[in-house]
Nucleic acid binder design. Structure first.
Length: 735
RNA sequence: AGCGGGGUGGGGUAGCUUGGAAAUCCCAUCAGGCUCAUAACCUGAAGAUCGUUGGUUCAAAUCCAACCCCCGCUACCA
């Protein structure tokens, strides 16, 4: 039996997985694995949680727990989420296992034995009080390029320059504040340069790779590879199996990729066949596929292959299927910015198959894609429910109602034959696309077949045939059910549980999983009594998806006042012309607070998607934001100058639809004082809520959305937050 | 900043490697039809001078150059 190894990038155990992980690697890997099982191949599919590395120690330090506790927590959460999503791993493990440690040490020693490691001493800061070496980011000091005294050792947040910790004057340990000393420390380096030529030849052969993966890799190789350190001075990670290195650990990027191999070995050991892993790694006819995001390409096209070459005797990746990114409201997913949709969350609202559908249909295969709740609801409702689900349901429920069983197939006319030929054609299309890892295309072919089904059903009109020619009606229904059967089998890689439900609904024996694509040829069992069909998918109520985003339906932009005039017919109102990237007329009630001259040239924050409204006879197209508290009023403004029209974000979907004034009033936006930075807390007047903020200054007052017990500080590009032009009390309501 | 990818009707996309009758498909919009089905389905229409500016050519979305914008990597998010 032909064998396939499916490898999926290892989610980092520092937070719950989100839709980006799923659409970027987990889901394409699973679809591909299921497809291969369907066509009868022996599939090994592995991944796990990446448990090591500095970010986890940082989280642990923040929470005051051990790194292991953090890693274990998210490993549990993510294992569950992955299972709930129906991702069919042979084994989903993690990198903090004995197996992995052994494999990592073994590979390390083998690379050393083969002469691909070198040792080098470099100076690094060591904190005597903490008795540890400090990673660059843990060192704080004065930036040599600007006056910032709080530059981190890797980068200055103030001027943005890249730094080495040694460049800082007045270096301090960020953990305890004491002055660290520079010490020599010795590390191992992977001699990547040994492999440049061989890797170049290898990648040049791989012309079946996606072009962006291949050209990017070739470019990296053309620049020449630099030897990289593979050990570092931290205590969390895989120990280095060399005397004198007891206090050091392997770099996580070096050790985590080995997880593919160690997971396969762990799988084999669990089956009491410890040598079984070799069938997937040493047999040159086995093709291995790696699914990951574009940020991860070099690790899989250069570094891991170099390691495999250095060890020798192990298969190189056959294909590295890298996806682009799925963004959310124009922003990349990022936990720190509060821009993410966690899988555990979304699964409380929607079934796995529905989520899988959307994430496949919108998969960022060749370029970035955008997740919006509006698009989510739309695609589910009009594609999955209306086209696909509805065809299956109308065919099955009509048959059930009028026959109660699978009807007899009589003589086929030209149209029936053409339809069945179309089914075969669609089957070939779907399977071809799946084999080429073109999942959106495959899904499209599947949907096209559902549409053809609808067209056929309409053309043969069984609802009138049933009254005139019941025999012929049975035949066209039989053909329709054939289409359903094909849809069931072909949709299995994408939506496995719905597919199996359809299979059972058609009175077919066994399961799709057991029969594979042979199920396409298996005849329907005429005369079998059917169960009453139920719709496969329910429509998504707009409210359900809005629940996630209603607080962010505001489209805020930076606006520059170009002209201010008194309203001809009102005491308190101004007519303001504001540039928000385009001119906009705004009527505002600021006359009691600001003179026209004070307002001219001012830079404000404008709601640009409000329903226009007439105020004392003049149309107002937008609204400027101001905070109000006990008779005092302050205008919202960006803390640094931003050009007119710049998008200001709460971090989530900007919506795009028009917002009525009533809806706007339901939103809670307040002035809040940042009372602590880590974890960030915001005082919004009488109560303190947790908040997300990009890099706030404690004691400063910011504008923030408040929802429940958390808040989202509004911000523009470059972490520019929204502040006030006059002092205003914390808790002031913004409108 | 360097490197890679992308910029096609309102939104998403195909085509661009091998230039050729003003361009594919889905959604939304509009007009019809049907009534089996989750107001679902089917048919038809309107809608783009293919990021900008130049160039090559009889002919460019498609090739070349410059520029603008978005994203990623370089810098521990798929």
């Amino acid at each position: 039996m032909e064998r396939v190894l499916v490898c999926c990038a290892w989610p980092y155990a520092n937070g719950p997985i989100h839709v980006g992980h799923v659409t970027g690697s987990l889901l394409p890997a699973d679809i591909f694995a299921r497809f291969n099982r369907l066509v009868g191949k022996d599939v090994m599919m592995v991944s796990g949680s990446d448990m090591h590395g500095a970010p986890i120690t940082v989280s642990a330090h923040k929470e005051g727990v051990s790194p292991e506790e953090i890693a274990d927590r998210y490993h549990r959460i993510n294992s569950k989420a992955i299972e709930d999503l129906g991702i069919s791993f042979s084994l989903y493990t993690h990198t903090h296992t004995r197996d992995h440690e052994e494999v990592a040490k073994e590979i390390f020693l083998k690379l050393m034995e083969n002469g691909h490691l070198s040792r080098k001493s470099t100076p690094q800061y060591y904190c005597t009080r903490c008795s540890r070496f400090l990673p660059d980011r843990y060192v704080e000091g004065s930036c040599p390029h600007c006056d910032n005294e709080h530059a981190r050792g890797d980068q200055c947040d103030s001027c943005g320059m890249d730094l080495n910790a040694e460049e800082l004057s007045d270096a301090r340990c960020q953990l305890c504040g004491s002055t660290p000393e520079l010490r020599e420390t010795e590390h191992f380096f992977l001699r990547l340069s040994d492999f440049t030529d061989e890797l170049t030849r290898y990648v040049e052969r791989c012309d079946h790779w996606r072009t962006h993966v291949r050209s990017f890799t070739l470019n990296v190789l053309r620049d020449g590879l630099i030897d990289r350190p593979i050990t570092r001075d931290i205590s969390w990670g895989v120990p280095v199996p060399v005397e004198g290195f007891e206090s050091k650990r392997m770099y996580v990027w070096f050790e985590a990729v080995m997880g593919y191999l160690s997971a396969t070995k762990e799988w084999a050991a669990a089956r009491s066949a410890p040598d079984d892993w070799e069938r997937f790694w040493k047999d040159g006819s086995v093709k291995s596929y790696y699914f990951l995001g574009k940020d991860n390409i070099v690790f899989h096209t250069v570094i891991w292959p170099a390691m495999l070459l250095g060890v020798g005797g192990l298969n190189l990746p056959h294909n590295v299927v890298a996806n682009q990114f799925m963004n959310f409201g124009g922003q990349k997913f990022s936990k720190s910015m509060g821009v993410s949709i966690d899988i555990p969350d979304i699964l409380t609202k929607f079934s796995a198959d529905v989520v899988r559908y959307y994430l496949t249909a919108n998969m960022p295969e060749f370029k970035d894609s955008e997740f919006t709740w509006k698009d989510f609801a739309q695609r589910i409702n009009s594609e999955l429910v209306a086209t696909f689900g509805n065809f299956v349901h109308r065919a099955m429920s009509f048959t059930f109602k009028n026959y109660g069983a699978i009807p007899h197939k009589g003589e086929l006319d030209e149209r029936d034959k053409a339809m069945l030929a179309r089914v075969d054609e669609a089957g070939r299309d779907v399977l071809r696309s799946l084999g080429a890892c073109e999942f959106r295309e495959a899904m499209k072919s599947l949907m096209d077949l559902a549409q053809s089904g609808n067209q056929y059903f309409d053309a043969v009109a069984p609802w009138s045939l049933v009254r005139t020619d019941k025999e012929r009606c049975g035949t066209v229904l039989h053909v329709s059910l054939e289409i359903c059967k094909a849809l069931a089998v072909l949709s299995y890689p994408f939506m496995p549980s719905s597919a199996e439900r359809m299979w059972r609904g058609l009175c077919m024996e066994g399961s799709i999983e057991e029969n594979g694509t042979n199920g396409m040829e298996m005849p329907l069992k005429e005369g079998s009594t059917m169960e009453k069909p139920a719709p496969l998918f329910a429509k998504v109520e707009t409210g359900e998806s809005e629940a996630f985003s209603k607080h962010s339906a505001l489209d805020l932009k930076v606006g520059k006042v170009t002209d201010v005039q008194a309203h001809p017919n009102a005491d308190k109102l101004y007519l303001m012309d504001v540039d928000v990237g385009k001119p906009m007329r705004i009527v505002s009630g600021l006359k009691d607070y600001y003179t026209a001259d004070e307002l001219r040239e001012k830079v404000l924050i404008i709601v640009t998607n409000l329903e226009p409204a007439k105020l004392r006879g003049v149309m107002s197209e937008g609204m400027l934001l101001a905070a109000e508290e006990g008779g005092a009023l302050a205008l919202l403004t960006p803390e640094k100058p931003l050009p007119a029209g710049t998008q200001i974000s709460s971090g989530l979907d900007v919506g795009g639809g028009r917002l009525s004034f009533n809806e706007f009033q339901k939103l809670e936006i307040r002035a809040g004082t940042l009372v602590q930075a880590d974890p960030p807390k915001l005082d919004v007047g009488g109560r303190t809520v947790s908040c997300t903020v990009t890099s706030g200054e404690v004691g400063r007052r910011y504008a923030a959305y408040v929802r429940g017990s958390s808040a989202l500080v509004m911000y523009g590009p470059d972490d520019t937050k929204v502040v006030f032009d006059r002092d205003i009390a914390a808790g002031a309501r913004i409108r």
